[in-house]
């Protein structure tokens, strides 16, 4: 087993050690956001750019995020078409000077479910334009395979719909994707509510989790941020330690030899 310090994962060649990616929306104030980000130990913060925040308009808020010194992963939240997503990705590249883009393309407004067809199309176009694409996708194996074939080194399947806090709705699907795409960096994105959800994702062998509402919407975001950091560490240690096999029949951990006969059945 490699040492704790050398345990990292890759995002397009960049080695990342913190397995918690944190969002920057919905906090009670920018000050609480900054404290929560620090408490999370995250190295990557996601930001959602809106048209009205381009160039100078959003400068003060972006400066607060840039001041954290973390790597910025812009997303295309709220986009419904391939063209919208590409325009926003281009704006993000200019504002944040990064070729990383978390590609979010919504196909259904009620559960904010990604549109798999448009997602694949936009991914191909963005790769051709020189972007490094991190697609937010559903937990569908074939979609994930197609995205990987298109060149994605990182995939971000959902745990549950955005903002629901329901945790991993389909651990079986997530586990299958992990097993079938062993060389792809996998990050569970969206739907987490509790630290135990994040822990479970890491136990399944996912490289990291990305979350926002679970921390920003907590009664005390900074404390919840600590909790998620601990949970992600726990899950990762558990994965590396390899869990004992599950059994249907009890196996005593104390040997019965030497036990008085009236205690035995």
């Amino acid at each position: 087993m490699s040492s704790v310090i050398s345990d990292s994962f890759s995002i397009y060649g960049e080695q990342i050690t913190s397995r918690l990616l944190i969002g920057s929306a919905l906090y009670p104030s920018p000050a609480v956001m900054a404290d929560s980000i620090v408490a999370s130990g995250a190295q990557i913060v996601t930001v959602s750019l809106r048209r009205q925040q381009s160039a100078a308009a959003g400068d003060d808020f972006w400066q607060l995020i840039k001041d954290t010194g973390l790597k910025i992963l812009p997303n295309t939240a709220g986009c419904h078409s391939v063209n919208e997503a590409i325009t926003l990705a281009q704006m993000c590249r200019e504002v944040f000077a990064t070729d990383w883009i978390k590609l979010e393309l919504i196909g259904d407004d009620y559960n904010l479910q990604p549109d798999p067809f448009a997602l694949l199309e936009a991914t191909q176009i963005l790769f051709a334009e020189g972007f490094k694409v991190l697609p937010y996708c559903t937990d569908d194996l074939v979609l994930c395979q197609r995205l990987a074939d298109a060149g994605c080194e990182v995939l971000m399947p959902w745990g549950a719909p955005i903002g629901t806090g329901k945790g991993l709705l389909n651990p079986y699907n997530l586990k299958t994707i992990r097993e079938r795409l062993p060389d792809t960096t996998l990050i569970v994105d969206a739907g987490l509510g509790l630290p135990s959800h994040a822990c479970q994702a890491l136990e399944l062998g996912y490289d990291a989790v990305l979350l926002n509402s679970a921390i920003a919407g907590a009664g005390c975001p900074v404390t919840m941020s600590h909790a998620f950091k601990a949970a992600v560490d726990a899950g990762r240690f558990a994965y590396r330690a390899k869990a004992m096999p599950e059994k249907d029949v009890a196996a005593p951990s104390t040997p019965t030899m030497g036990m008085p006969f009236w205690h035995q059945q």
Partner: peptide, 11 residues
């Protein structure tokens, strides 16, 4: 409520 200093017309 949008983190922006854009004073332009509403979207």
């Amino acid at each position: 409520e949008i983190e922006s200093q854009d004073k332009g017309a509403a979207t």
